[in-house]
Design a protein around this nucleic acid. Structure first.
Length: 194
DNA sequence: AACGAAGTCAACCGCTAATTT
DNA sequence: GAAATTAGCGGTTGACTTCGT
C-alpha cells in the first residue's frame, strides 16, 4: 500500500483515534518521542500504542508538545512582524512562523485568519498616501523581479536570522522595513491589482 | 434564559517535495 | 534512476465558545 493511502486506510478503520488529544495520549506520545526521537512518525504512531496515524502524531508534537512552544498572547511586536512578513511573503506560514520563536505555522495561520486578515482588509479600504514617484519602479516586470529576489533572499537567509534577543529582533524589523518601504501597490503586478 | 450568528482554533485532508531504499 | 516512504505545507473543516438579540 502506498503511504499516501495509509491515512485513507486508517480513516476507514475503526481502530484509529481521531479528534482531540487527551492528556494521556499526549503523555504517551511525548514519552515515545523521548525514546525514539521526533522522526519516522508512522513508527512512533505504532510504538506509542496510540491508535493515531503518524501524521496526527507529528502535528500534535510540532504544534503543542515540543519544548519552547509559546501559546496565545501574541504581542504587538509579534503582530506587527506577522503583518510585515505576510505583506512580503504572502501565505507562507511556515516561513513566517520561522521568524517568530516558539510560534507555529498553524497558530500564525489561525491568528491571521481570525484577527489580522480582517484588520488588514479594513485598513486597505482607507486610501493610502501617494508614495513619491521616484520610489516606484516603472515597469511591472522590474517590480516582479525585485519582489522575487527579496523573497529569495529572505528564504536563503533563514539560517542566519536569530530572533532570540530583542536586539536582533529590532534589527530584523529594520531589515524588513527596508524592503517594505516599497511595499505599496507598486509591488503588485497588474494581475494582482485587479 | 434561549437561541442563532459569529468567532476561534485544534485537527484533518490533499498535495508536493525531499529522502531513503 | 525509479519507486516507495516520509516530511512538510497550506487550505479547510468542525467542535466549541462567545456574543448579540
Amino acid at each position: 500500500m502506498a503511504s499516501k493511502d495509509i491515512n485513507q486506510y486508517a480513516s476507514a478503520t475503526k481502530a484509529i483515534n481521531r479528534g482531540a488529544w487527551t492528556p494521556e495520549e499526549d503523555r504517551r506520545l511525548a514519552e515515545c518521542i523521548e525514546v525514539h526521537g521526533a522522526k519516522r512518525w508512522n513508527t512512533i504512531a505504532i510504538k506509542s500504542g496510540l491508535n493515531r496515524c503518524g501524521k496526527s502524531c507529528r502535528l500534535r508534537w510540532l504544534n503543542y508538545l515540543r519544548p519552547n512552544i509559546k501559546r496565545g498572547n501574541i504581542s504587538d511586536e509579534e503582530e506587527d512582524l506577522i503583518l510585515r512578513l505576510h505583506k512580503l511573503l504572502g501565505n507562507r506560514w511556515s516561513l513566517i512562523a520561522g521568524r517568530l520563536p516558539g510560534r507555529t505555522d498553524n497558530e500564525i495561520k489561525n491568528y491571521w485568519n481570525s484577527h489580522l486578515g480582517k484588520k488588514r482588509n479594513q485598513k486597505e479600504k482607507i486610501p493610502q498616501p501617494v508614495i513619491a514617484q521616484e520610489t516606484i519602479p516603472e515597469k511591472t516586470s522590474d517590480v516582479t523581479h525585485m519582489k522575487e529576489q527579496v523573497v529569495k533572499d529572505f528564504e536563503n537567509s533563514e539560517l542566519n536570522f536569530d530572533f532570540s534577543t530583542e536586539e536582533s529582533y529590532g534589527l530584523n524589523l529594520d531589515w524588513a522595513d527596508k524592503f517594505l518601504q516599497l511595499d505599496d501597490n507598486s509591488w503588485l503586478t497588474e494581475e494582482e491589482k485587479s
